[in-house]
Design a protein around this nucleic acid. Structure first.
Lengths: 192, 192
DNA sequence: CAAATTCTGGAATGGATGTTTCAGATAGTT
DNA sequence: AACTATCTGAAACATCCATTCCAGAATTTG
């Protein structure tokens, strides 16, 4: 019947995501986006939609990519406790080596409180991480690898809760070692 | 020689702060600000300055107010460990009862990475909290109230680090109990 | 190849943005 | 009370914003 869309939508969203990641939702203009995506605004509006819709796609892309990576990384590890430790350690690595801090956390503090659609996506992402980790914590408790607490739900919340502070800390102090020390202490606490 | 400024600058900054607190730096317009402050933009530019300067004043006001409150609250408590526990508990109270989450944290994630002036103010605030708490942790270790670790610096970082995550958690889940449980576990961990 | 359909680029839209201007009001000083 | 410096309010400013329009190009199907 007629011609097809010329640009790769997935790639375009990924480039938009990079801009939002660096500048935040309100700090990003449509010009920033179309420039980075290499497409005209009319094409953008004809395919994906407006700025808000593009942001939704961006954070979905972000969270989905992260979920896949987490699954891939933890799958081969047999000991639940070792998997939990790996999860903590690779979080520390990402926090102290990526140029921007976590897009999901930035988004939570910038817009999640007033944007229901965004909040749902972020919540789904957090619930995913919770379930992934909670599965490991439960097994570790069963196996007797973890004895510090029998309350897996609380312990899961407790572990995940550290990451946000580490991001904040790294933005302000840019000090890897102090974060590594906190992580070591956390692991030591769990290892009881 | 001539007339004086008509408006109360402290009060005006405090009102501006409320707007930035709710909407963030980029989400706030000059019209939002002048409306909330009840003054004309020309008066604002003639006294305080532009939007950025007003933001600087706002976060300074925020951090200074918070510092004073923290000092006042902890002063009468004699046991260092009890003071630390009080600090944690009142953080939980603020996090789960204030309408907006911490302005300093929101600002850190929104603009601190790219705005040096802002970053300095936030860092000074964090350093203040660090020093306040570290003094207590050191004393508690000396007195033998804390035995879980002898590394007061790390332990201070570790305790402070929880607050950011609790804020994030409350925005997403609005669940006070899960936060209280984490706080109780943290206190139990320190109490060794 | 022709027809039909849909995409693209650039310009245009109206409204919002941060900031400045300026005439007139105001209050401290003499 | 008069003078004078400075503040105030409303409007104006240029620029930027997100979004839309449309003519023409491009591509698929018959």
């Amino acid at each position: 019947m007629a011609r097809n869309v010329e640009f790769d939508e997935q790639l375009a969203v990924s480039k938009a995501m990079d801009v939002f990641w660096k500048k935040g939702y309100n700090g990003t203009t449509m010009r920033d986006l179309t420039e980075a995506m290499g497409i005209n605004s009319s094409s953008l509006y004809n395919t994906i939609g407006d700025k808000h819709e593009l942001f939704i796609r961006s954070i979905k892309h972000y969270t989905e990519t992260r979920m896949k990576e987490a699954l891939k990384q933890l799958e081969p590890i047999k000991s639940p406790l070792k998997a939990i430790e790996k999860f903590i350690q690779s979080s520390v690595y990402v926090i102290t080596n990526e140029p921007n801090s976590c897009l999901a956390i930035k988004t939570t503090f910038e817009v999640a409180a007033t944007d229901e659609q965004v909040q749902k996506i972020i919540k789904a992402d957090n619930d995913f991480t919770y379930n992934l980790l909670n599965g490991l914590v439960e097994k570790a408790i069963q196996k007797g690898e973890i004895t510090v607490s029998q309350d897996s739900a609380m312990l899961t919340d407790y572990i995940i809760n550290h990451f946000s502070g580490w991001h904040e800390f790294f933005i302000i102090h840019k000090d890897k070692n102090r974060i590594k020390n906190m992580a070591s202490f956390l692991i030591k606490q769990i290892n009881q």
